[in-house]
């Protein structure tokens, strides 16, 4: 008995970690979602969530996340494709990944300077003769900066998928008379679909829950689910409603992962 106990003694810290920081928080969020702002047990939060205000917010959050994911994919796929064709591909890949090491806040902050009224972007527009425009605090700036931030996370899985693909497959497709477009559509794309899927997962879910960027770059114009949660918890102090939105975000996350992932790859 003693030996069995001491054998498993080392597992205790990890088990405690799972219990306290993985299981308990989820249970607590679920528990709090059933309390209204006065602390009474009720379903008010869930009923409120299905009022037009919250539904509209959820839909717009989805729309922005979709746009961000789509643009990121549009830029990343060709980039990853070109990367595999270059000579020093590991070096180029490294250069693309470097920005992801820098704190997200600093990148957002840098764009405050670039997009500001007297910033670089506006000076460029002046030179081109378009004249200065309000760039910061618009939908455009929000989507632009988000796409910029998520690109490395999208390129990486796609690059890996493309890199793993055997070049003999392309030769075979060529030999059998496939055009470049057919080769891409029938051979390359299906084989890299897993990479695209995990890339979309890595982008879409964080895009739904962004809250710092919405505040800094879009000046509260864009409200995502993440912004709403932060607002409810830290500003309105309505933890019940915040928890309810969090519950829905978790559900959405699971549905999205189930829809896009055939099998999960390690991060």
């Amino acid at each position: 008995m003693k030996s069995k106990l001491s054998r498993n003694l080392y597992a205790i810290p990890y088990a405690l970690w799972i219990l306290i920081f993985v299981v308990a928080p989820i249970v607590l969020v679920l528990y709090y979602s059933f309390f209204d702002i006065e602390g009474n047990l009720s379903l008010t939060n869930y009923i409120n969530f299905f009022t037009p205000v919250y539904l509209k917010m959820t839909l717009s959050s989805f729309w922005y996340a979709f746009l961000i994911t789509a643009f990121t994919l549009l830029i990343s796929y060709p980039t990853a494709f070109l990367l595999t064709k270059t000579k020093n591909k590991q070096l180029w890949l490294l250069l693309i990944i470097v920005p992801s090491w820098i704190n997200l806040l600093l990148k957002a902050y840098a764009f405050l300077g670039i997009f500001g009224t007297y910033g670089t972007a506006n000076s460029l527009l002046e030179v081109l003769g378009i004249g200065s425009k309000q760039i910061l605090f618009t939908d455009f700036s929000f989507i632009f900066v988000s796409v910029y931030i998520f690109i490395p996370f999208m390129i990486l899985p796609i690059f890996n998928a493309l890199d793993e693909m055997s070049p003999t497959l392309l030769d075979a497709a060529n030999d059998l008379g496939a055009s470049a477009w057919t080769t891409f559509r029938r051979v390359i794309f299906p084989l890299t679909l897993d990479g695209v899927r995990s890339g979309c997962q890595v982008v879409f879910i964080p895009a739904l829950s962004l809250f710092m960027l919405t505040r800094l770059i879009s000046g509260n114009r864009v409200i995502t689910l993440g912004t709403a949660i932060e607002q409810q918890f830290l500003v309105t102090q309505d933890w019940g409603m915040g928890s309810t939105i969090a519950v829905f975000l978790i559900i959405i996350m699971f549905v999205f992962v189930a829809l896009t992932g055939s099998r999960k790859r390690g991060m």
């Binding site: 969020v29 739904l208 932060e230 915040g242 975000l249």
Partner: peptide, 9 residues
């Protein structure tokens, strides 16, 4: 899980 949910929970 998104940071916001981790933070809130």
């Amino acid at each position: 899980s998104p940071d916001v949910i981790i933070g809130a929970s």
